[in-house]
Design a protein around this nucleic acid. Sequence first.
DNA 1: AGCGCACTACGTACGTCGTACGTAACTAGC
DNA 2: GCTAGTTACGTACGACGTACGTAGTGCGCT
Lengths: 236, 236
Amino acid sequence: MAVRGAEPEVIWARPERAGRGPKPAFTRADIAAVAVRIADAEGLDAVSMRHVAAGVGCGTMSLYNYVPRKEDLYELMVDAVSSEHELWEPTGDWRADMMRVAEQTRELMRRHPWVPRLMSPVYGFSPNALRYLEHCLACLDPLDASYGTKFELIAMLNGVVTTYVRNEIDSAERVRNLPWSQEREQAVRIAYLGGQVASGAYPRMAEAFAEDAGPIDMEAVFRRALERVLDGFAPS
Amino acid sequence: MAVRGAEPEVIWARPERAGRGPKPAFTRADIAAVAVRIADAEGLDAVSMRHVAAGVGCGTMSLYNYVPRKEDLYELMVDAVSSEHELWEPTGDWRADMMRVAEQTRELMRRHPWVPRLMSPVYGFSPNALRYLEHCLACLDPLDASYGTKFELIAMLNGVVTTYVRNEIDSAERVRNLPWSQEREQAVRIAYLGGQVASGAYPRMAEAFAEDAGPIDMEAVFRRALERVLDGFAPS
DNA sequence: AGCGCACTACGTACGTCGTACGTAACTAGC
DNA sequence: GCTAGTTACGTACGACGTACGTAGTGCGCT
């Protein structure tokens, strides 16, 4: 019998194919693709071992031959979509390049709304993540700073993008999963909030709500946030 | 029989005590306190309805008289710990005040490591969150900017703090839940990463690893990140 | 060539979860 | 005091991750 679990490992270091035994019917890439498809279509919570196994067409427990723990499945998924990062030849304008990186990361997360929830420093070293990191560093070649600082920049930019998209996605997904309509929900929340603010306990909040009549341009908010981050790293 | 679910509501708008019927044996605050205690001690995943019910000393399903859905329990928890935010008289130095806000938020999240995972714009309007927001706005009175800009500042600062602490916590919690030791895990990961980098496919990563010999001072990284955010909002 | 073993495949089963639903006890308003 | 709405809570259902046992397969060794 094979040794079950109990050994630490990085899934990327584990060979896809062992020497002995019958050849596997699927690849990790197949499994990851199915999981990604399910997550895109039905949300991350629909990604269960049973579901994925049914998707690839095998028994539930057979999956564990390819993926030791569910967490590793998540890691596979993140790496799979990370291949969608476009890696271009740096232009020499690091600000423009990093803005483009951020923009593309955001679009990637919009295509795969479950990515922000899985983002973690722990998943930071999958093959495609390494390629992505190397690309960012290449874009930052013109910036006169230590690698330490460059990593801080990348982390911060990623953090801001992730946070913004996560907020966007969370609200949308929450609405979709609720048993009542978005309008009802929003109306109830606004009514409550209005009541609280009108109570006089939060004068500045009241002022703020009075001031901001128009709808917020989230696109502009996002872009300003990125610019501000980059400003913080531009040599003065 | 009572009407079950199907009506949108904000839990904060629901009265704690209905007119009819026997008087409730507990308060929402009791329940939130128990849930917080469990989450602090055993992690967020240990916060199940059964567990919390056992903690307050009632049947599992009785909880649903107080908390319509589990998500609302989360909302109660976040609000409960939000009361720990210290709200002082603004000093007039908005940068110092906001640094202090961020520092205290970080400490709050370190005391309650599950908070980052529950952070969401949706939970943004609980009573204590409103108080917190109002306090931030008060600290920002000296800053000459629109409320829109001030909200962007607060959101960004919170985002950065949350991201940093989340990374810190995630790594720690992951290690605690793994069936092997931290040293083994780290050794395996570093061995893998070193192998990848040594392959020559990532020249800048290799350079970076060669450059940064000393351990990273996370405290300084955190503080620099905050400073940079605030820089982005200081009138030039 | 053929043996043995490491591997794949997968069904069963356990303990967990959120929560729908039914019933009994209780109390505020008419 | 009646009754309607609430509280309390046990039971039950359909998920979930995954430990474990067993059967079958084909590579690597002798």
